[in-house]
Design a protein around this nucleic acid. Structure first.
Lengths: 253, 253
DNA sequence: GAGTGGTCTAGACCACTGC
DNA sequence: CAGTGGTCTAGACCACTCG
């Protein structure tokens, strides 16, 4: 930018420490371009030198901004090729949110089977979590996940009806890719991060049947809230995991 | 270093891509100094300029090495003060490994009560996990964790007897700090990272009594393997979490 | 070979801490 | 005030990809 000081110097009395370095401001501008869909997921963004010219800063400053965004899985750097908008269509992103692994043995063929998809109105809990008004339209999807043909997870996914209005059971069944790929490609919604809350619960009758376990047997309940750009919640999901042959793996850094 | 090329250029035929940048080599040297206990946990390491002189590189290269180690929670930077060896005595590290949060309400007073501590010989599973030989001495600790006086977690912790030979129930009871602080201070073992495997199980009789839940009710089983420098496993732990009023919170980046 | 990201350096200056 | 980490710049060169 033209004047470093003018962007960083603060009124000395009111705000004691609101200092924001230049590279973070650049990061904000890139983020904004990303949110505005200026570059499509999976596509390349301009080179560091181009961006440096566009923002009137040095390449090093752009680099630091991109570094942070790459660390947050918003961008992907590929040496010699360029920097790309992260996408759930990228095979490397497929398992970013699914922490389930077999207790013994290696990789298993996973399959997701959509069971139901229906419209409803947001109740108090869904409205709170998804930041909607009470009674606003939502869409609910019910799925069964299998590994090696064995049922392991039953899912219910709550989505804001406004954003995902065209979603149907057929479109889910036709989709060959992951559900987040579908959301990204068909609805322009990219999940950035999520929080999961885990508890142990007893299997209800319907879930027990689907998962082929005894009613009342312990299941892992996983509630997930997913966020898109700007920390907007756009998905609320509850899964019941049968942990007889699988477990939820978490790395603590 | 004196010659960049000499450290990075590889034999052109045998190893096609074993390129290691200078800052990573510096990182290795700093890591080695850490492992050797050259600087004590919580203490300051030399300034960037000093390290740059010591390793004959520019400050920027040292900075990049430290940046990575700070991102891995090995070092902590404090502007104006210096860079410090991360320590479990630091209050900010207390909740780094415990992901349990109350479902409703805010912070609660946590308390850890050691119940038992005894010696044993490593069985096949403990030996495998802790990388010991069969029959080598191990120490087992049993604890009860309470929040607001309510029991929430029962723990069993398996430790290599060699390393933790002086550990006793009394020393655990006397310790006012977290157990990882104790390990670090009394035994010189710093936990760097851990992996946890979660499953849902039915409460056995003993655990049910301690947690004051019905026998057979669902509990969250959390198995943790903790690693110290060099990815050496030094702790194996199994906890049973009562998730009636608490849940395991996980952020998916 | 041209273009991209990746590394390394040197130097200037800013923000924060503590004496 | 001196010393620390934090930011920004400019320039050189390396590693990788692709046409």
């Amino acid at each position: 930018m033209f004047e470093y000081a003018s962007m960083t110097r603060q009124t000395p009395v009111e705000s004691p420490t609101t200092f924001s370095p230049l590279y973070r401001q650049i990061k904000g501008l890139i983020l904004q371009a990303l949110e505005n869909g200026e570059w499509r997921p999976g596509g390349a963004i301009p080179s560091e030198i181009e961006l440096a010219g566009r923002f009137n800063v040095s390449q090093g400053t752009v680099r630091k901004a991109i570094d942070e965004m790459a660390a947050e899985n918003l961008l992907i750097r590929r040496q010699g090729k360029g920097t790309f908008v992260a996408s759930h269509n990228d095979p490397r992103a497929f398992f970013r949110f699914l922490r389930l692994v077999p207790i013994a043995g290696g990789i298993e063929p996973a399959h997701s089977e959509p069971l139901e998809c229906w419209r409803a109105k947001a109740g108090p809990e869904a409205a709170r979590v998804l930041n909607l008004k009470l009674g606003e339209p939502i869409i609910i999807v019910r799925r069964l996940l299998t590994f090696s043909e064995k049922p392991v997870v039953v899912d219910e996914i709550y989505l804001p009806g406004e954003i995902f209005s065209g979603l149907s059971l057929d479109s889910l069944k036709e989709s060959q890719t992951s559900i987040y790929s579908l959301f990204e490609t068909k609805f322009g919604v990219r999940m950035i991060r999520a929080e999961e809350r885990l508890r142990a619960v007893a299997a209800d009758r319907a879930s027990a049947e689907l998962l082929r376990v005894a009613e009342g047997s312990p299941l892992l309940s996983v509630e997930r809230i997913s966020f898109t750009y700007g920390d907007r919640p756009v998905e609320w999901r509850r899964g019941l995991y049968s942990t007889a042959a699988h477990c939820y793996l978490n790395e603590l850094g």
